[in-house]
């Protein structure tokens, strides 16, 4: 039975890079992998989702509602939006970050209060990560996505995958050090 990971965020948050590193690592680990990155108009600040499935053999790349083993949300409203895709006993890893959608910033709608509380009350397996905050501390706000990656790999149930090597393969050399540091920081959260 294939395992499924759903990554959600806002266009520009670097979800696709994390998906790429994850699926390459899983392939190197000997699994059949399918990753689906549907990115229509999402570069313009819309919701972004990528779906990864891995196992001995993967057929459909799509993850339906109630099916994801792991939901990784780079923004908390997106966690709430896609929660219906998580399995009842699945794991949610959520970045404690708030990005206003256009209708909210232009005053036409409200960002709901108490998102984190609602999530915590509903899900047994939830891990809240201060990825944006930590990334700023590390001096590179953009590496919040690699912190998220670090925080989730232990939940994959796979061993012997050299994630650091995967990070190196996917990022330019001058940012290796900071991102490897970010990954390790994520692993220890």
């Amino acid at each position: 039975m294939a395992k499924s990971i759903l990554l959600v965020g806002v266009g520009g948050q670097g979800t696709i890079l994390v998906s790429k590193i994850l699926s390459q690592g899983l392939m190197k680990g000997g699994y059949d992998v399918k990753m689906s990155e549907i990115h229509g108009m999402s570069q313009r600040g819309g919701s972004v989702t990528t779906q990864i499935k891995f196992g001995d053999k993967v057929y459909s790349p799509s993850i339906d509602k109630g099916e994801a083993d792991i939901l990784i949300a780079f923004e908390k409203l997106e966690a709430a939006r896609y929660l219906d895709h998580l399995k009842k006993n699945g794991i949610l890893i959520v970045n404690d970050e708030e990005i206003y959608p256009m209708p909210v910033s232009s005053g036409l709608a409200e960002y709901p209060q108490g998102v984190m509380k609602a999530l915590t009350d509903t899900i047994d397996n939830i891990k809240i990560i201060q990825a944006t905050k930590i990334a700023k501390e590390l001096g590179e706000p953009r590496c919040h996505n690699i912190i998220m990656l670090g925080s989730m790999v232990k939940f994959l149930g796979v061993k012997d995958i050299d994630w650091v090597e995967m990070i190196k393969q996917n990022l330019p050399e001058k940012v290796h050090k900071i991102n490897i540091g970010a990954f390790k920081r994520g692993q220890n959260l």
């Binding site: 806002v10 266009g11 108009m41 999402s42 570069q43 313009r44 600040g45 819309g46 919701s47 459909s60 799509s62 339906d64 509602k65 109630g66 099916e67 409203l77 997106e78 709430a80 939006r81 929660l83 219906d84 998580l86 399995k87 009842k88 959608p101 256009m102 209708p103 909210v104 709608a109 409200e110 960002y111 709901p112 108490g114 998102v115 609602a118 999530l119 509903t122 899900i123």
Partner: peptide, 29 residues
């Protein structure tokens, strides 16, 4: 797969986690 299950096997939807929140849309801008 879910749509095929519902259409041909008349299977119910998976059990779904729900939040009591009003989630604003996030359209591209």
């Amino acid at each position: 797969p879910q749509i095929i299950k519902e259409s041909l096997l008349k299977e119910e939807e998976n059990e779904i986690l729900k939040l009591d929140l009003n989630i604003p849309i996030r359209p591209p801008a």
